[in-house]
Write a protein that binds this DNA or RNA. Structure first.
Lengths: 181, 181
DNA sequence: CCACACTGGCTAACGCCGTTAGCCAACGTC
DNA sequence: GACGTTGGCTAACGGCGTTAGCCAGTGTGG
């Protein structure tokens, strides 16, 4: 949790206006539409004026990323705690918020700024596999990979993606105390 | 394999020049540098002339994607056939060719054009888990997710990523004939 | 042998992008 | 009431993908 409290939004008031506008555009029109001019227009302002509140387009994106990660974390807590439940929550949030998911999890991130929030989002998965950190991060990788492949349409048409999730999550969550190296 | 023979390069001669130039730029300077003007310059030509050979920047990207996927497929066959070996080959190729990997596997793809090649790349993973298709695609998701997270620097500093791979791949490759639903 | 179409270059330009420079009105403060 | 700060504005720059339109060379059919 540290000192950047996740529950209260971040940045100055005008910065929050900006990210709110960007968010609206992102959700309704996708990432390509999130331009400085477009965001400014959404606020009834000219593009260069944004730079009075924000040094870069990059910081707008970082703010979006933080927002997305926080919402994602909440979504992952909204259902059951069993691996299948968390996995299902992961997938369904990502599919319902593809652009937000993109912002949350793709593109490199600055660890200092985002770390706590990201950890907040990752926690449910770690709990779900009973605290085995390696297994938990593997499950995270699995979930992210499957979602990313699905979002980018890499599965042949007709693939039973549910079955893949079941197979993967069950394998990852299974008791492995009997198998040798 | 079908009729688009994977072993012979694709497109007209000039198209192959173009993708070769784009490839050189992509590898040495990253995706942002792959612009039409830059590619044209690489060929000693003006940007608009490219459009005599290519309708779109999109087709250049598709050609890059196909090339990358083909090379990736070869790399996945270059080592052992055991799950760990294939997984290791997957990871190491991706980390050594991050931009190519990006092109190969991220961004949506047209199934008709790329399907065969992609299947070519996915085969080794399917074999590695003994033909269980769901498990194989889960393994693919796992590998993709872990690579993507690593490339985008989503793991806390100091994370033992090897251990995550071991945990994940072993779980996915384990004999599961004893666990109930 | 020449007309002609086609191929593959070229320049100029358009509308977008992020961003900078410089101007100015409103406002709060000493 | 002078004055610095805040937050708008317009103009402009360089880069992007892309289109329009021009033209030299080339090969081919009559």
């Amino acid at each position: 949790m540290s000192e950047t409290d996740r529950s209260r939004p971040v940045g100055t008031e005008r910065q929050r206006d900006i990210v709110a506008a960007a968010l609206r555009i992102l959700i309704s029109e996708g990432p390509a539409a999130v331009t400085m001019r477009r965001v400014a227009a959404e606020l009834g302002i000219q593009a260069p004026s944004l730079y009075k509140h924000v040094t870069d387009k990059g910081v707008v994106e970082e703010l979006l990323q933080q927002h997305a990660m926080a919402e994602f974390g909440v979504a992952l807590r909204s259902g059951g705690r069993a691996p299948r439940d968390v996995a299902a929550a992961y997938r369904s949030w990502a599919l319902q918020n593809p652009h937000l998911y993109e912002f949350a999890v793709r593109r490199p991130m600055r660890h200092d700024a985002i770390g706590a929030t990201e950890q907040f989002a990752a926690e449910p998965l770690i709990e779900a596999v009973g605290g085995d950190r390696d297994r938990a991060l593997a499950l995270l990788g699995l979930a992210h990979g499957l979602v990313d492949l699905e979002l980018n349409d890499h599965f042949p048409r007709g693939t039973d993606i549910d079955a893949i999730w079941r197979a993967g999550v069950d394998a990852m969550a299974a008791d492995r105390s009997s198998t040798p190296t």
